[in-house]
């Protein structure tokens, strides 16, 4: 039996890598200095998908991502590791979406695809909300399994999953299709494969091809697997009242930058008053508490 697996992935700024050089002099984040990466837990989800593909002959793994044009990078990255292809959901109408408007758009794109199982990372490191997986499941009216540590098997149209909870683990079963979100504590994703890298390095979206230099030879005519499909809001018949900012019930009222102090270390004594002042400062700048 072959499974049709969709992996939801997001390109995110590497917020874990906010070293001291990524902070501006005023203590705010220098977003430009942060590299854009494959959301780490989405890689854990990809690995679970690839393991199922290895186990069940005839299975396919497709990456679905929503983002700007350059997010096609993570589809290629997924293909280098074993995914068969991907779809980039991209449109200005999607900009400013909160998790619900994002889930609406992703669910519409999925409705046009053939699928048995949808995998995603538990959460993305830029927002840490863990909401898109369950909300996509709700929009598709299918079951969800969150906090997965491993997908044990898919037999008789039923997926068996090990979940990690606060104080233990549980094994659950759900009929297909369903959404499974995978924890960072699950197995790491396999590295790039050299052969796949050679095979897919010229995989591009139409927009990327249009933007490349004129003497670039388009290989996609002979090799259709090099075409990364781009899908717009119109392609999925999105109602624009439900996408982007207008489709987002939550609004950002204000943003406060957390200000980190200068590099020069401040030296304190073991005096209780000094320690309490430090603790108050850490609470005030949201480092703790």
């Amino acid at each position: 039996m072959g499974l049709k697996i969709i992996v939801l992935a997001k390109q995110v700024p590497d917020t874990r890598n906010v070293g001291k050089d990524a902070m501006k002099a005023d203590g705010t984040v220098n977003r430009g200095a942060l590299p854009a990466i494959f959301n780490p837990e989405d890689l854990n989800a990809l690995e679970q998908a690839l393991r199922l593909k290895d186990k069940y002959e005839g299975s396919t793994v497709s990456i679905l991502t929503m983002g700007p044009g350059r997010a096609a990078e993570i589809i290629r990255e997924g293909m280098y590791r074993g995914a068969d292809g991907g779809i980039l959901l991209t449109d200005r109408a999607f900009a400013g979406a909160d998790t619900l408007a994002t889930s609406y758009a992703i669910a519409l794109a999925i409705k046009n695809m053939d699928y048995d199982l949808i995998l995603a990372g538990r959460q993305a490191i830029d927002g840490d909300t863990a909401q898109v997986g369950p909300q996509v499941a709700e929009k598709l009216r299918i079951p969800q399994i969150t906090y997965a540590e491993s997908i044990n098997s898919v037999e008789k149209k039923t997926v068996n999953v090990l979940r990690r909870l606060e104080r233990g683990v549980e094994t659950v079963e759900s009929p297909l299709p369903c959404v499974v979100t995978v924890n960072g504590s699950a197995a790491d994703c396999r590295p790039r494969n050299a052969k796949l890298l050679m095979k897919y390095k010229h995989a591009h979206t139409v927009t990327e091809l249009q933007d490349s230099s004129e003497d670039y030879i388009d290989l996609t005519a002979d090799r259709p697997y090099l075409k990364i499909k781009e899908v717009s809001a119109a392609d999925v018949n999105a109602d624009l009242n439900w996408t982007g900012l207008s489709g987002s019930p939550t609004k950002v009222k204000s943003i406060q930058n957390v200000v980190f102090q200068a590099k020069e270390a401040r030296v304190l004594t073991a005096d209780a008053y000094e320690i309490e002042e430090l603790v108050k400062e850490l609470i005030d700048n949201h480092t703790i508490g």
Binding site: P13, V18, V252, I255, V258, H286, T287
Partner: peptide
């Protein structure tokens, strides 16, 4: 907190 703890955001649901 958002953005890996580098900003603190106030979110509202007006409607």
């Amino acid at each position: 907190p958002a953005f890996g703890g580098n900003i603190v955001a106030t979110i509202i649901n007006p409607e």
